[in-house]
Amino acid sequence: MKFGVLQFPGSCDEVDALQAARRVGDAELLWHGDESLQGVDAIVIPGGFSYGDYLRAGAIARFAPAMESVIAFAADGGLVLGICNGFQVLCEARLLPGALLVNANRRFTCRQVELEVVNGDTPFTRAYTAGTRLSIPAKHSWGRFHAEQRTLQAMEDGGQVVLRYAPGHNFNGSARDIAGVCNERGNVFGLMPHPEHAIDELTGGSADGIKIFESMRTSVSDPAAA
Protein backbone atom coordinates (compact mmCIF):
# COMPACT_ATOMS: atom_id res chain seq x y z
CA MET A 1 0.00 0.00 0.00
CA LYS A 2 1.46 3.34 -1.00
CA PHE A 3 0.46 6.81 0.22
CA GLY A 4 1.12 9.88 -1.89
CA VAL A 5 1.73 13.09 0.06
CA LEU A 6 0.94 16.09 -2.11
CA GLN A 7 3.32 19.00 -1.69
CA PHE A 8 2.53 22.57 -2.73
CA PRO A 9 4.82 25.58 -2.54
CA GLY A 10 4.26 26.59 1.09
CA SER A 11 3.36 23.15 2.44
CA CYS A 12 5.22 22.56 5.69
CA ASP A 13 3.95 19.32 7.23
CA GLU A 14 4.73 16.96 4.37
CA VAL A 15 7.71 15.41 6.18
CA ASP A 16 5.65 14.40 9.21
CA ALA A 17 2.87 13.17 6.93
CA LEU A 18 5.39 10.97 5.06
CA GLN A 19 6.76 9.71 8.35
CA ALA A 20 3.31 8.81 9.67
CA ALA A 21 2.37 7.10 6.40
CA ARG A 22 5.66 5.14 6.44
CA ARG A 23 4.82 3.77 9.87
CA VAL A 24 2.01 1.82 8.21
CA GLY A 25 3.04 1.48 4.56
CA ASP A 26 5.05 3.02 1.73
CA ALA A 27 4.83 6.70 0.94
CA GLU A 28 6.19 9.14 -1.60
CA LEU A 29 6.04 12.85 -2.15
CA LEU A 30 3.91 14.13 -5.04
CA TRP A 31 4.50 17.59 -6.53
CA HIS A 32 1.58 19.96 -7.12
CA GLY A 33 2.70 20.72 -10.67
CA ASP A 34 2.58 17.08 -11.82
CA GLU A 35 -0.67 15.68 -13.08
CA SER A 36 0.42 12.12 -12.36
CA LEU A 37 -0.34 10.69 -8.95
CA GLN A 38 2.30 7.97 -9.59
CA GLY A 39 -0.16 5.16 -9.03
CA VAL A 40 -0.45 5.66 -5.27
CA ASP A 41 -3.29 3.99 -3.35
CA ALA A 42 -4.27 6.96 -1.18
CA ILE A 43 -3.59 10.70 -1.08
CA VAL A 44 -2.62 12.85 1.90
CA ILE A 45 -2.77 16.63 1.52
CA PRO A 46 -0.62 17.95 4.36
CA GLY A 47 -0.71 21.12 6.39
CA GLY A 48 1.02 24.37 5.60
CA PHE A 49 0.35 27.53 3.68
CA SER A 50 -0.07 26.45 0.08
CA TYR A 51 0.69 29.29 -2.35
CA GLY A 52 1.10 31.50 0.71
CA ASP A 53 -2.62 31.07 1.48
CA TYR A 54 -3.10 34.19 -0.64
CA LEU A 55 -6.72 35.23 -1.23
CA ARG A 56 -8.11 32.47 1.03
CA ALA A 57 -6.44 29.41 2.52
CA GLY A 58 -6.44 26.69 -0.14
CA ALA A 59 -8.08 28.85 -2.81
CA ILE A 60 -5.20 28.83 -5.29
CA ALA A 61 -3.87 25.36 -4.46
CA ARG A 62 -7.24 23.96 -5.50
CA PHE A 63 -6.37 24.76 -9.15
CA ALA A 64 -2.95 23.05 -9.18
CA PRO A 65 -2.53 20.42 -11.93
CA ALA A 66 -2.24 17.65 -9.32
CA MET A 67 -5.57 18.68 -7.79
CA GLU A 68 -7.43 17.92 -11.02
CA SER A 69 -6.03 14.39 -10.72
CA VAL A 70 -6.95 14.24 -7.02
CA ILE A 71 -10.54 15.25 -7.88
CA ALA A 72 -10.70 12.45 -10.48
CA PHE A 73 -9.08 10.01 -8.02
CA ALA A 74 -11.73 10.88 -5.41
CA ALA A 75 -14.50 10.52 -7.99
CA ASP A 76 -13.24 6.95 -8.60
CA GLY A 77 -13.52 6.22 -4.88
CA GLY A 78 -9.87 6.74 -3.93
CA LEU A 79 -9.10 7.73 -0.34
CA VAL A 80 -8.11 11.37 0.16
CA LEU A 81 -7.08 12.74 3.57
CA GLY A 82 -6.70 16.49 4.06
CA ILE A 83 -5.00 17.78 7.21
CA CYS A 84 -5.32 21.43 8.23
CA ASN A 85 -4.37 23.33 5.04
CA GLY A 86 -5.22 20.10 3.20
CA PHE A 87 -8.73 20.28 4.70
CA GLN A 88 -9.00 23.88 3.50
CA VAL A 89 -7.90 22.83 0.00
CA LEU A 90 -10.50 20.02 -0.08
CA CYS A 91 -13.26 22.45 0.95
CA GLU A 92 -12.17 24.95 -1.70
CA ALA A 93 -12.20 22.10 -4.25
CA ARG A 94 -15.76 21.28 -3.11
CA LEU A 95 -14.70 17.72 -2.35
CA LEU A 96 -15.88 18.44 1.19
CA PRO A 97 -18.84 20.52 2.34
CA GLY A 98 -18.49 23.87 4.09
CA ALA A 99 -15.62 26.30 4.49
CA LEU A 100 -12.95 27.16 7.05
CA LEU A 101 -12.98 30.71 8.36
CA VAL A 102 -10.66 32.72 10.57
CA ASN A 103 -10.67 31.49 14.20
CA ALA A 104 -13.32 33.20 16.31
CA ASN A 105 -10.53 34.29 18.69
CA ARG A 106 -8.66 35.91 15.72
CA ARG A 107 -5.45 34.25 16.85
CA PHE A 108 -3.09 31.67 15.49
CA THR A 109 -3.44 28.98 18.13
CA CYS A 110 -1.17 26.01 18.71
CA ARG A 111 -2.32 23.59 21.39
CA GLN A 112 -3.11 19.98 22.17
CA VAL A 113 -6.83 19.37 21.67
CA GLU A 114 -9.12 16.59 22.80
CA LEU A 115 -11.33 15.14 20.09
CA GLU A 116 -14.22 12.69 20.13
CA VAL A 117 -14.66 10.13 17.40
CA VAL A 118 -18.26 10.59 16.23
CA ASN A 119 -18.20 8.15 13.33
CA GLY A 120 -15.90 5.11 13.67
CA ASP A 121 -17.21 3.50 10.49
CA THR A 122 -15.38 5.56 7.89
CA PRO A 123 -12.34 4.28 5.95
CA PHE A 124 -10.29 6.79 7.98
CA THR A 125 -11.55 5.99 11.47
CA ARG A 126 -12.31 2.27 11.45
CA ALA A 127 -9.39 1.56 13.80
CA TYR A 128 -11.20 3.64 16.46
CA THR A 129 -14.60 3.10 18.00
CA ALA A 130 -17.19 5.86 18.18
CA GLY A 131 -16.93 7.77 21.44
CA THR A 132 -13.14 7.32 21.74
CA ARG A 133 -11.25 10.42 22.91
CA LEU A 134 -8.10 11.45 21.06
CA SER A 135 -5.42 13.91 22.08
CA ILE A 136 -3.90 15.55 19.00
CA PRO A 137 -2.15 18.88 18.35
CA ALA A 138 -3.86 21.64 16.39
CA LYS A 139 -2.16 24.77 15.02
CA HIS A 140 -3.94 27.18 12.75
CA SER A 141 -5.50 30.61 12.27
CA TRP A 142 -8.23 29.61 9.83
CA GLY A 143 -9.94 26.57 11.35
CA ARG A 144 -13.48 27.66 12.14
CA PHE A 145 -15.66 25.17 10.27
CA HIS A 146 -18.75 26.78 8.78
CA ALA A 147 -21.65 25.45 6.73
CA GLU A 148 -25.30 26.43 6.36
CA GLN A 149 -27.64 24.96 8.99
CA ARG A 150 -29.30 22.80 6.35
CA THR A 151 -25.94 21.40 5.25
CA LEU A 152 -24.89 20.81 8.86
CA GLN A 153 -28.05 18.83 9.54
CA ALA A 154 -27.60 16.73 6.39
CA MET A 155 -24.01 16.05 7.45
CA GLU A 156 -25.06 14.97 10.94
CA ASP A 157 -27.78 12.73 9.53
CA GLY A 158 -25.43 11.20 6.96
CA GLY A 159 -22.58 10.40 9.37
CA GLN A 160 -20.35 13.02 7.76
CA VAL A 161 -19.41 14.59 11.08
CA VAL A 162 -16.48 12.31 11.87
CA LEU A 163 -14.69 14.14 14.69
CA ARG A 164 -15.78 16.75 17.19
CA TYR A 165 -13.81 18.89 19.62
CA ALA A 166 -14.46 17.59 23.13
CA PRO A 167 -16.32 20.01 25.44
CA GLY A 168 -14.05 22.97 26.19
CA HIS A 169 -11.70 22.27 23.26
CA ASN A 170 -13.44 24.08 20.39
CA PHE A 171 -11.00 27.01 20.51
CA ASN A 172 -11.65 28.15 16.93
CA GLY A 173 -15.45 28.46 17.17
CA SER A 174 -16.35 25.70 14.68
CA ALA A 175 -20.05 25.09 14.05
CA ARG A 176 -21.37 22.26 16.21
CA ASP A 177 -17.81 21.63 17.53
CA ILE A 178 -16.93 19.98 14.23
CA ALA A 179 -13.24 19.08 13.87
CA GLY A 180 -13.33 16.58 10.99
CA VAL A 181 -15.76 15.82 8.18
CA CYS A 182 -16.09 13.40 5.29
CA ASN A 183 -17.95 13.58 2.00
CA GLU A 184 -21.24 11.73 1.43
CA ARG A 185 -19.48 8.75 -0.04
CA GLY A 186 -17.02 8.62 2.86
CA ASN A 187 -13.80 8.45 0.80
CA VAL A 188 -12.67 12.04 1.33
CA PHE A 189 -11.88 13.20 4.86
CA GLY A 190 -10.57 16.47 6.24
CA LEU A 191 -9.66 17.59 9.75
CA MET A 192 -7.98 20.64 11.26
CA PRO A 193 -5.94 18.91 14.02
CA HIS A 194 -2.77 17.07 13.00
CA PRO A 195 -2.82 13.27 13.40
CA GLU A 196 0.57 13.07 11.65
CA HIS A 197 2.14 14.98 14.55
CA ALA A 198 0.64 12.55 17.09
CA ILE A 199 2.28 9.26 16.18
CA ASP A 200 4.75 9.20 19.04
CA GLU A 201 4.25 9.82 22.76
CA LEU A 202 7.60 11.60 22.97
CA THR A 203 6.92 14.32 20.42
CA GLY A 204 3.18 14.34 19.79
CA GLY A 205 1.71 14.27 23.28
CA SER A 206 0.15 10.95 22.29
CA ALA A 207 0.22 8.38 19.50
CA ASP A 208 -3.52 8.71 18.94
CA GLY A 209 -3.16 9.96 15.36
CA ILE A 210 -1.52 6.91 13.84
CA LYS A 211 -4.81 5.01 13.72
CA ILE A 212 -6.04 7.35 10.96
CA PHE A 213 -3.21 6.04 8.79
CA GLU A 214 -3.77 2.46 9.97
CA SER A 215 -7.44 2.78 9.10
CA MET A 216 -6.57 3.97 5.61
CA ARG A 217 -4.15 1.08 5.09
CA THR A 218 -6.79 -1.43 6.17
CA SER A 219 -9.40 0.21 3.96
CA VAL A 220 -7.15 0.04 0.91
CA SER A 221 -6.18 -3.60 1.48
CA ASP A 222 -9.68 -4.71 2.44
CA PRO A 223 -12.20 -2.24 0.94
CA ALA A 224 -15.15 -4.61 1.39
CA ALA A 225 -14.90 -4.43 5.17
CA ALA A 226 -15.10 -0.62 5.23
Binding site: L55, R56, A59, I60, F63, E92, G98, A99, L101, H146, A147, E148
Partner: peptide, 8 residues
Protein backbone atom coordinates in the same frame (compact mmCIF):
# COMPACT_ATOMS: atom_id res chain seq x y z
CA UNK B 1 -14.49 30.42 -9.25
CA UNK B 2 -11.62 32.08 -7.43
CA UNK B 3 -11.89 35.60 -6.05
CA UNK B 4 -14.78 34.94 -3.64
CA UNK B 5 -16.03 31.81 -1.91
CA UNK B 6 -19.78 32.03 -2.56
CA UNK B 7 -20.46 29.73 0.41
CA UNK B 8 -19.32 32.40 2.86
Amino acid sequence: KLLANPLV
